[in-house]
Structure formats: C-alpha cells, structure tokens
C-alpha cells in the first residue's frame, strides 16, 4: 500500500458515488454534479494507477488528465446552457421521462 494506491482507491470511491448520483437523481443539476464527481474519480484513478505501476513519476497521465479536465469543464458548461434553456422553456428541472417515476 503506497500513497499512489490511496489516490486510486479514493478515485474508485468517487466513481461509485458519481454513478450512484447519476442514476438515482433525476434533478438535472444534481446529475451534472454527479457527472463531475464521476469524472474526478476517473482522473484520480488514471493518475494514481499509472504512478503506481511505474516507480518514477510519469508525465503522460498528467497531461491526459489536464486534457480530461478541460473536456469535463466544457461538458459542464454545455450541459448548464442546455439545462438553463430547458428550464426556460418547460419550467422543469427534470426530463419528462424521469417525472413518471416520481
């Protein structure tokens, strides 16, 4: 057990929380937050596991994670715009298919 592995386990835990949130929340903003938690979990795993496998720090995963974070931010922004428009049109915070369950 070393410090890198801790990152990975933390990542797995975050992923779990994220997926749970994604599935069990129908509120669109909550879902978006769940997605962000999930993506952070994946990034942690990506960095943690790679560092664990190779003894010295590896720059590639860090570059990848940086790119990944940019992509996630872009995704969040796009989702927020759409959610805002959706709220403006429909006055709802959930998608129509999900409302039947509640």
């Amino acid at each position: 057990m070393n410090s890198y592995l801790i990152f990975s386990y933390a990542g797995v835990a975050l992923c779990g929380i994220g997926v749970f949130g994604f599935i069990f929340h129908s509120h669109l903003i909550k879902r978006l937050i769940a997605f962000n938690i999930l993506s952070n979990g994946v990034f942690l795993i990506l960095v943690g596991l790679a560092q664990n496998a190779q003894k010295q720090p590896d720059h590639l995963p860090q570059a990848l994670v940086l790119t990944g974070i940019v992509v996630a931010v872009a995704a969040t922004a796009l989702a927020l715009v759409l959610i805002k428009q959706w709220y403006a049109i429909s006055q709802q915070t959930t998608l129509p298919e999900d409302q039947e369950h509640q």
């Binding site: 669109l28 999930l38 994946v42 596991l49 995963p61 429909s90 298919e97």
Partner: peptide, 24 residues
C-alpha cells in the same frame, strides 16, 4: 432540448466508461 440533454448525459456516461478503461 429534452432529447439533447438526454443524449448529452448518456454520451458523457459512455465517455467516462471509456476513459476509465483507458486508465486501467
């Protein structure tokens, strides 16, 4: 809009699965 949102969430979930696979 509803279709776009649904599509976005599904696609993001898919991307995360793919990225996790890459990490491993």
């Amino acid at each position: 809009l509803a279709a776009a949102l649904r599509y976005l969430f599904a696609a993001l979930l898919g991307s995360m699965g793919y990225l996790l696979g890459i990490a491993l």
